[in-house]
Amino acid sequence: MTSEQGDHIIRSYDEELEHLKELIARMGGLAETQLADAVDSLVRNDQELATRTIRNDEKIDEIEHELDAYTVRMLALRQPVASDLRMVISALKVASDLERIGDYAANVAKRAVALHQQQPLDPVRSLPRMAKLVQTNIKRVLDAYAKRDANMALNVWESDQEIDEMYTSLFRETLTYMMEDPRSITSGTHLLFIAKNIERIGDHATNIAEIVYFMATGNQIMIDRPKGDTSSFAVVEPPNEDKTAGSGSNNGDEQK
């Protein structure tokens, strides 16, 4: 369900909305590249690429500032309503999600530099696949944004579950390595943060999907999102209300 829009009577209004879309597209493209470069630098052990990726985060921030100023200007001068209002507000929100994605990508690159000085850890191998999925989701959600396609957005929103599940299994695997060999704790911890960052990037892609859905339809997605990240309880059992607090016999206490 894509929503077709006619042209405004005032042509410059359309041009401004178009410019807003372009800024989001540029920002989204950069965020996509940043994530790809960060993961590449990690997998190929490319220090130079990692450093460049860290530096490039500035560019995303710059576009965000430009976009912020532009939306404020449009709100003040055009007083958009209905679908136009939803579009301007959405641009503002999508930009802040993309900016966060950029931050996480830069952090992945930073940790890639740190990880380079450590012994390599096996679970690193599953990172590119996870990153690939996240990248695909970013790409698709940006397409959905450009086309105002609510169904496509819903699709991205639902597919985040797979990323969550991959993260949970990577979490468990890394934890096992760290338990077996304490010397792997440093690299294991960096790896966990990297995986978590990538998983968070996936979450921001689903945020954007929600925004796109709202922009296209005027409604919020009303169903509960399937979630596959159970890593919070990978070691410690979820608190069970039936057990009296501090019984001392649950898994969590044994692990401490």
Binding site: Q5, G6, D7, H8, I9, I10, Y13, P80, V81, A82, S83, D84
Partner: peptide, 9 residues
């Protein structure tokens, strides 16, 4: 309604 309030044809 949409076209009218957003200033479209």
């Amino acid at each position: 309604t949409q076209d009218y309030i957003t200033g479209r044809f």
